[in-house]
C-alpha cells in the first residue's frame, strides 16, 4: 500500500498518557470485518471515544477540541497485543503520522513502519517532558525530523534523537514499501529455492 513520503513534520500533539495501550483498544475486533482498507479512522479507540449510545465521551483526548495534530503521544508499551494491521491503518486514517512513546510492541512497530507511520521512541523522562509541555499549552508544537532522526519540543528547543533502521528510513522518506523491494528479487528467491 503506497503512503505519503515522510521527511519532516511540525505539528501539535494529542496526549494519551496510558500505558499498555493494546491493539484491541486501538481498533476493537468487531471493526475488523471490512474487506477493504477504508474508514478505520472513525473507529480508532472506538470504545474509549464513544459510549454505548455512540455519544462521544467528553474527557477522552480525541474528543477534546483543544487537542489536535498529527502526532499521537502514548504511554509505554504502545500497541501491544494482536498483529492486526488495522491498528496502524486506523491511526493513519485518523490523520496521525507519528506515534511517540517510550516503548513500542514489536509487531505494531513493524506494522506502523509498513504503513507510513513513524514510531518515535524517546526516554521515559523525555516522554514526561512531552506530556508536561502539552499539559502546559495544548497548542505547543513539536518537530519531527526524519533525516536528522531528531524530535524537538519547539518552545523549549529541547530535543532528542531517535533510532530507525536505515533501510526503513529509506523506505519512509521515499514512500516505498517492502513488497516493491521483494518483487525485484524474484531471481534470487528462485535460486534460493533450488538450494
Amino acid at each position: 500500500m503506497a503512503y505519503d513520503k515522510f521527511t519532516t513534520l511540525t505539528s501539535q500533539a494529542v496526549p494519551l498518557p496510558i500505558e499498555n495501550i493494546d491493539t484491541d483498544q486501538i481498533i476493537p475486533a468487531r471493526f475488523l470485518k471490512a474487506v477493504e482498507r477504508k474508514g478505520f479512522g472513525d473507529n480508532l479507540f472506538r470504545d474509549w471515544r464513544y459510549d454505548k449510545s455512540n455519544l462521544p465521551i467528553a474527557d477522552f483526548p480525541l474528543n477534546q477540541s483543544k487537542y489536535s495534530g498529527k502526532i499521537l503521544v502514548g504511554g509505554k508499551n504502545f500497541g501491544s497485543g494482536s498483529s492486526r494491521e488495522h491498528a496502524a491503518w486506523a491511526i493513519y486514517d485518523y490523520g496521525f503520522r507519528v506515534v511517540v512513546s517510550s516503548f513500542f510492541a514489536d509487531i505494531f512497530q513493524g506494522n506502523a513502519l509498513n504503513n507510513g507511520i513513524l514510531p518515535v521512541v524517546v526516554s521515559p523522562e523525555f516522554l514526561e517532558k512531552i506530556f508536561a509541555a502539552i499539559e502546559a499549552d495544548q497548542n505547543t508544537l513539536f518537530e519531527v525530523d526524519l533525516q536528522k532522526q531528531k524530535f524537538t519540543i519547539c518552545i523549549t528547543g529541547e530535543s532528542t534523537g531517535f533510532n530507525i533502521n536505515p533501510y526503513k528510513k529509506h523506505c519512509m522518506t521515499h514512500g516505498l514499501d517492502d513488497i516493491d523491494y521483494l518483487l525485484s528479487m524474484k531471481e534470487e528467491i528462485a535460486a534460493f529455492e533450488k538450494k
Binding site: 500500500m1 494482536s82 498483529s83 514499501d177 513488497i179 521483494l182 518483487l183 529455492e193
Partner: peptide, 19 residues
C-alpha cells in the same frame, strides 16, 4: 505472526523482511 502488508509480501514473494 505478521501484519497484512507482510501477508501480501509472502503471497507475492514467499519471503518476508525481518530484522
Amino acid at each position: 505472526g505478521i501484519g497484512t502488508s507482510e501477508v501480501e509480501m509472502v503471497l507475492a514473494s514467499q519471503c518476508i523482511m525481518q530484522p
